[in-house]
Every structure is written in structure tokens, then in C-alpha cells.
């Protein structure tokens, strides 16, 4: 997972962008994680006849190559579909700067190395305004120091310790938990003495 995300930033000012918007459900009928870039923001990016919508930021210059999004409040709300995160990453998005993210989306992002720095509404507005400039602007998200850099400016962001560690160490959660197999076994042994989670077949 990248410790530093650097790239062109695009502004997506809508509040409450839900995972149905990020990845419409017709792209969920798949048994793999692949080929989801085309589904990402599909209804915002394309007309019904699949021609690109020129009013969508990622379809306009210079932002078609954006790596970072600056977004409205409560981004990623709605369904648990990890396809939304897979699709964003496959589209080349590596960081999303916002004021708040839905819980499941936030966890899914961590699992896929998509950085979600949380900033205050004032900082977000400032970054969004700058990102809207027609020349385009690049930001650097420094995960280790929890700082967003642009030019000479350094702006702090929030990221909980566990998420930061996951990004920095690139740890694989399943393996990590298997290391705790003993704790798990002990816990399960404890259950035998209680009635509460017995399985009735």
C-alpha cells in the first residue's frame, strides 16, 4: 500500500454520494473483482447511450487523470458493496479527501489501500476550491505524518491509528488474525461453558 499518495485532485462537491452512485448495481452481478473501472460513477460519467457526459469532472481536462478526489460530506453511504472501492481503485483513485465517510466504506477502503484522510469542513472547502481551478492542482497525502501538502501549505488530517498502521504496513488482515488463532481457540473453548452461542442444528 502506498505511504504517500501524490497526484492531481478533482472536486466532487455533492454531499451523501452513496455506493449506488459510485458503483451502480448492474456491475455487481459478477463473481470476480475485475473490470469494475468502467462501472465507477457510471451514471455520472456516461449517458444512456454510453457516450461520456461532459458535465462530469473526471470527463474533463485536466481531471480525467485525477488520482485524488475531494468530496462532499458522508461519502460512501449506503450499501456495503466493496465493489465501490474496487472500482475507484481500478479507475486510478488512490486517495479521497472528505469530512466524513460511511463506516463500512471506510473499512473497505482500508482493506484495499485507498487512503481516506478526514479534514474539517473549512479545510475541505479550501482544498475543493483549489482543486476546481482550471489549471488543476496536485496534492500529496502523507499518511505517515497525517499531512496533506500543496505547494508550501501543510494541512493536518485525521486517520485513526489502526487505519494508518494498515496503510503503512500493508498488513493482510486475514493472515493477521490467523496469528491470533490461539486467542480464538481459547475464546471458543470458553463458549462451551456457556449456552449463549451454541448452535442448534
Amino acid at each position: 500500500m502506498p505511504k504517500i499518495v501524490h497526484g492531481l485532485a478533482a472536486a466532487l462537491p455533492l454531499a451523501n454520494v452513496d455506493t449506488d452512485v459510485i458503483m451502480p448495481k448492474r456491475f455487481l452481478i459478477t463473481i470476480t473483482c475485475e473490470g469494475l473501472a468502467e462501472g465507477t460513477f457510471a451514471d455520472l460519467r456516461f449517458h444512456d447511450d454510453d457516450t461520456p457526459r461532459t458535465d462530469f469532472v473526471l470527463n474533463t481536462r485536466p481531471w480525467h487523470g485525477a488520482r485524488i478526489l475531494v468530496v462532499g460530506d458522508n461519502f460512501g453511504c449506503g450499501s456495503s458493496r466493496e465493489h465501490a472501492v474496487w472500482g475507484l481503485v481500478q479507475l486510478g483513485i488512490q486517495g479521497i479527501i472528505g469530512t466524513s465517510f460511511a463506516g463500512i466504506f471506510y473499512d473497505n477502503a482500508r482493506k484495499n489501500g485507498l487512503a481516506l484522510p478526514i479534514v474539517s469542513p473549512e479545510v475541505r472547502d479550501q482544498l475543493m476550491q483549489a482543486a476546481s481551478h482550471e489549471d488543476g492542482v496536485s496534492y500529496t497525502i502523507d499518511i505517515e505524518n497525517r499531512i496533506i501538502r500543496t505547494g508550501e501549505t501543510e494541512l493536518p488530517f485525521d486517520m485513526d491509528d489502526a487505519t494508518q498502521t494498515a496503510h503503512l504496513e500493508g498488513r493482510e488482515d486475514t493472515l493477521n488474525s490467523l496469528e491470533f488463532a490461539d486467542a480464538n481457540r481459547n475464546y471458543e473453548r470458553g463458549l462451551d461453558d456457556q449456552q449463549r452461542v451454541r448452535v442448534i442444528q
Partner: peptide
């Protein structure tokens, strides 16, 4: 009871646990 993403589905299938921070 709460929703999880597909990576977490795999995690629960493999370990019967979930890595979580308390809300």
C-alpha cells in the same frame, strides 16, 4: 449486527472473527 465488505466476509469465513474498533 452489522454489514461488512467482501474482504471482511472472507475474513469471517476464514477466522470466525472480525477486526473491529469499538463505536
Amino acid at each position: 449486527a452489522h454489514g461488512i465488505g467482501t474482504s471482511e466476509v472472507e475474513h469471517v469465513l476464514a477466522t470466525q472473527t472480525l477486526i473491529q474498533k469499538k463505536s
